[in-house]
Structures are given as structure tokens and as C-alpha cells.
Design a protein around this nucleic acid. Structure first.
Lengths: 343, 343
DNA sequence: GCATCCTCCCAAAGCGCTTTGATATTCCGC
DNA sequence: GCGGAATATCAAAGCGCTTTGGGAGGATGC
């Protein structure tokens, strides 16, 4: 049958206390005793009952995630990839995930509930919006949290992990300008999300510095699916003055954009240049496109893993240090970018 | 601060027993009392402590999953998609997931441990191999389980959910033959996995019925990534007698195959026909390919959800009924299939 | 030699829930 | 009006762990 602490202690002729301490690395246990305990554990295959542990410690052993159910985000591949990283790391530390689907209007309440319920040791927030009210709320709660992304035009006095979206698209745009491009389109994520805002900002900055202006008719915002990518590109190409280059916020959108370009009989890297942000989705590699894509790269999965790590290490630490990380992206040049065609 | 059962009971002037029963739908509670309790719950925002519940009931409230860490399966998009379904459904029922990464050689031990630890109420098995020893082991354990897929050439006296892989590829092949194709290639998953075995079998059956034979030189087995799809197709096209049609086991592989075909200057649906199995990956829709793909379709995510459901409902039921489900796939004809080119 | 300090271990309380076994109270048939 | 259900409630035990508050015994200091 199953061994529990009590039986294990009996077998060893020790008290539960000592066994428990031996297992949890307390210093006041004799080294020999500890070895004996560890051997017994190995022999019996004893595994502590998590529920009992959680109950006794008051630590839920899980990190909470409020998942928006609106707008098909749940089936968003980017979110899934991020979760994979978060999950992988949580599993490694034997943490659970408590995912709470919630309609956007109930989100704050859901967070509050989660935090109060004690079912959760840490919270995590993604899909940051402009001036996101949820952040103030998280700060008021007494639960550690980490934000993926960060607000814009607002003090960022909270723990976050973000990538340098502005920088990424600034660099990308600059490269295109250096190659002689003057009309550059942007296929972006939803306009209320801060990463989209920053990418646009980065692009505008580069344009400004070179005396160019951002053309609203060459800009698209939506969920990042290949269908929207296709339609956006199709629209751009129908423009009286079509772009000679395009920036995509996701490889998924690029998939659609490439299709539209090819269908129009144009050649990528020659007639039109394309740079996409690459979240390093395992199944959609920009280097495998017919014309390998130039990208700004940053692994979404790695971000998830890192956040899980920080969340877990913060638990119980009560440290006041506000850790903030801003990851740089890499600009990787492949065949999809080339000099602007001369008219 | 946080309300717990005790406080709630005090507030209501009831015993913990009664409150607990009222909440868990026991019949011996007065309807009025129950209403009072429910109102108090709403007002105080009381949420039961899961850990305590689990400890008291002995139900872990979680389903276990032994995840192979070998061969990059963890980053396999198909697995992720399946998990998404499983996860969605688990969350709905407030169940946890306990994912245990494990090297293949330790898998059986890991299962045993998981089952014995009591940290898990149900187990689930995927990536069934030919004559999979893990199934016998699961049967010997006293934990409910459901298998995704099923063994081949072996009694299937255990609960499973599978799709009709044989039928899917039989129908697909038959369609190609009716269109006049004689040389048909197969880009398949790893050869030890039963779904791959069955698909091949289905294809062979259709060929046999029409006096054709399966050509090993037009067959490929590997992990299902777009890179392998590309390479396999490239190899087939270099064949002295190249195929006029190809079957793919995944849209992801089809992505690579399409690239190889296009690069070779051939037109899909005309020079070469292609049918792929479609797991309904949210970001890779066969209808969005440049030439929309003919597919055999069955949602992987739906399968995950269904399995979670069955697992959860089996828990505590101790029913002996061995539920088995075999889902038919749909053959959806699009533009990637056409009559065989005349030589 | 006695007070003091470690070192190593223990008994028992407690985490918040469910469940068992009783106990009141009311209702029914005859 | 009485025995026996049926109804509605409760007190207390227990789930398996961690943690508090000691306490025995040997080493150390003076």
C-alpha cells in the first residue's frame, strides 16, 4: 500500500517531525539520520501528499492565470506558446496552474477572488492594454505577481518582463530605409495592446528620423491570424501607391501576407521586402519559408519559462525588489529583405 | 479577511457539517437553510480551500499526464493542441493537471509512482506505440484511465478514444485512385506510433483493392514537422518515377511538402495532388493554403476535451464499463486534388 | 562542578475541509 | 397516544503534512 509520513516515521523509529525536517532540508537533522531517511524514501517510493502539504503550509503551490475568454484568444497560438513555457517551468517545480477563464468585464473581480481564495500563490498578467487598470489592482493585492509586457505612458513601478518592442521595430524599419524603402506597411496586432503600440512607435521613430511619415492607409491592426495577414496585404497591394516593404507583428500574419504577395505575382525580397517579428513558434519557422524571412526574434516560450521562474522564486520571499526585465530582440537578416525596387 | 467554513458556519449559526452539506448538494438540508447558506457565500465571497478539500476527500482533483521528454515531443504542436483541449475541459471542472515529464525508459515507473502517490485521480496515455506495454500496466493500476489512440494487433479491452485512421487514409487513397492516380506517396508520422501504422494500412488496403502496390520508396516516416515534410517531398520528386499524388499525416508536414512542390515548379492539384490529415490546428488552416488542401479532418483539441471529460466523469464512479470511441474523420475535398496528369 | 550552550529529536497542535455516528424534532399510521 | 420513520441538525474524528515549543544529553566555559 501507500506509504505516508507516519508509516515512514514508524518504520525508521523516528518521529514525523524529524522525518519531515530531514526531507525538507532543515539543518538540525543529523547527517546520518538524514541519509537513513532518504534511503527509506527511495526504497518505499514515498511521495508526500501534496494536498496535505499545501494545507499545512498555506501555500497553494500554484500560480494563477486569468485567461481572457473573449475574441478567440484562447485558441491563439501565441498565447499557447507562452503557456507552454510557463507550464514547463511550473511543472519542473511541481507547481500547479490555476487557469481562470473570465470575461474581460469580470477580470478584476476574478483576480480579486483568486487572490483572496488562497488557492493561488502568485498571479500573472498578460496582454497588457494601454493604461491597464488591472495592474493597479494587482499592486493592491498582497500576492506576488509578474506582468508580461508593460504599460505605456505610465510609471512602470511593478515587476514585469517585456521585450523591447520599440527597439525591435525601430531597427527593422531603419534597415528597410537603408535599403532604400520609402513606403513601408505595418501589419500589427490589436491596437489596444501595448506591444502593438510600441512596435508602431518604433517604426514611426525610424521613419521620423529619416524624414518619412507613417501612412495610416498602410497600417493594419487585428488579431494575429494568417487570414488577417492575407487580407491586410491584399488591401495594401490594391493601394494606388503600394508599399515596397512590410513589417509583420507575427510569423502567423506573415504566412498570410506572403500568400497575398505571391498570389499577386510579386517576389518577396525583390519586389517587396518583408520583416516579421518571430516569436519562435516551433512549427512555423521563418527560415523555412519559400523565401526565408528576415525577423526580429524573441522566444515567447522562453519568456513564459522565465516568468514562471520569477513567480515561483518570489513566493514566500516577500522581497520588495521590483524586478524588471527588458529583453532585446535580435534582428536576423534573411532573404526576404532586399533593396527597394527602382521605379 | 478571508472567510473559511468555520467562520461562515458561525456567522450563520449553523454547524460546519450543515454548511458543507448545503454547499455540496446533500439532500438532507432544508431548502431554506440552503438558500441562506448560498446567500452568505455570495455575500462573503467564500471559496472553499481546495487543498483542504482534496485532503479530506482523498481526491486529488487532478489528472495525470506522463509527458515524454524525448525527441522534442514537448514542442510538438500536435501535442500542444491536444493539451489545449484537455486543459480547457479540466479547468472548466476545476481540475488540475499534473504533468510529469519522463524519459521513455522511466515511463512505466513514473506512471506507477503517480498512481501510488495519490496525487492523481486519473491517468491518460497518448502516443500509443505498437503493442504498447504501458497499457497493461495501466490496467493493473487501480486508477481510471483513458487512452488516446489504441494498440494494433492486440485486444483493445480498455477505455480509449481514437479516430478511424485506417478509414481516413483508405478513403483518401480511394479518391486519388478514382481520379486516376497510380503512384501515390505517403508522408507519415513516426513508424512505431499506431496512428501512423493504421494510416499506412488504410492506404495499402485501398491500393490492394485496385491492384496497386505500395511503393516503399515513396514512403516517409518521421516527426511531423514542416522540415521533414519538405525533405521527404524533395526526395520523392527526385525519384525516377515521381508520384502524381501524396498523402500527408499532418498539415504541418503538408506545409513543407507544398514548399517542395512549388519550388520544383509544379502546380498542386494539377501536376500533383495532395491530401493531408487535418488536426484542425487553429493557426494552420488547410483552406488558407495558396491552393486550398483536400483533407481528412478530425479535431485534436476536441479529442483532448472529450478525454478530459471522460476521465473526470469516471473518477469516483468505479464503473466497469469500458467506454470506447472511434471517431470518423471527414474527407473534405478542396482544390489540391485533381485528375492525374496524363503522361 | 555547575551553569550554559549546542545538537538532535519529539509530542502535539493545527491547516480547512468532509464524513461518521448521534441527537433532537416532527410526522405518520393505527 | 405511542412506536417508528423521516427530517434536519450537530459534535467530533480524521485526512497527511508542517511547525511550535519544548527537552534530553553531551560539550563547553569558568
Amino acid at each position: 500500500m501507500n506509504v505516508n509520513l507516519k508509516k515512514l516515521a514508524e518504520m525508521l523509529g523516528l518521529s514525523q517531525t524529524t522525518v519531515s525536517r530531514a526531507l525538507n532540508g532543515f539543518p538540525e537533522v543529523n547527517a546520518d539520520t538524514r541519509q537513513r531517511v532518504l534511503r527509506a524514501v527511495r526504497e518505499t517510493g514515498y511521495r508526500p501528499n501534496r494536498a496535505a502539504q499545501r494545507l499545512a503550509t498555506g501555500r497553494a503551490g500554484s500560480i494563477g492565470l486569468v485567461m481572457p475568454i473573449a475574441q478567440g484568444i484562447d485558441s491563439d497560438i501565441h498565447f499557447g506558446e507562452f503557456l507552454a513555457g510557463l507550464g514547463e517551468e511550473s511543472v519542473r517545480h511541481d507547481f500547479h496552474f490555476v487557469i481562470n477563464p473570465s470575461a474581460p468585464e469580470d477580470e478584476e473581480l476574478t483576480f480579486k477572488r483568486l487572490a483572496a481564495s488562497g488557492n493561488v500563490d502568485a498571479l500573472f498578467l498578460a496582454y497588457v492594454r494601454e493604461n491597464d487598470p488591472r495592474i493597479a489592482m494587482l499592486k493592491s493585492l498582497s500576492v506576488p505577481f509578474v506582468v508580461h509586457g508593460r504599460t505605456v505612458d505610465q510609471p512602470t513601478d511593478y515587476p514585469f518582463l517585456d521585450i523591447d518592442n520599440t527597439g525591435a521595430f525601430y531597427e527593422a524599419t531603419r534597415l528597410l530605409i537603408q535599403l532604400g524603402h520609402r513606403r513601408i506597411a505595418l501589419i500589427n496586432g490589436q491596437s489596444h495592446l501595448t506591444f502593438a503600440i510600441r512596435r508602431r512607435k518604433g517604426m514611426i521613430r525610424a521613419l521620423d528620423e529619416n524624414g518619412l511619415t507613417f501612412d495610416e492607409s498602410l497600417s493594419h491592426n487585428s488579431l494575429m491570424t494568417d487570414e488577417y495577414g492575407y487580407r491586410a496585404m491584399e488591401r495594401f497591394l490594391a493601394n494606388p501607391e503600394p508599399p515596397t516593404a512590410v513589417l509583420c507583428s507575427s510569423t502567423v500574419m506573415a504566412l498570410g501576407a506572403v500568400r497575398a504577395i505571391t498570389r499577386a505575382g510579386l517576389t518577396i525580397g525583390k519586389d517587396i521586402s518583408l520583416i516579421t517579428h518571430d516569436d519562435v513558434l516551433p512549427m512555423l519557422k521563418p527560415e523555412n519559408f519559400m523565401v526565408p524571412l528576415t525577423t526580429t526574434r524573441s522566444s515567447l516560450r522562453a519568456a513564459g519559462a522565465r516568468i514562471a521562474n520569477r513567480l515561483i522564486s518570489r513566493i514566500g520571499m516577500a522581497s520588495d525588489a521590483v524586478e524588471q526585465e527588458l529583453w532585446r530582440t535580435e534582428l536576423i537578416v534573411r532573404a526576404s529583405t532586399g533593396p527597394a525596387p527602382s521605379r
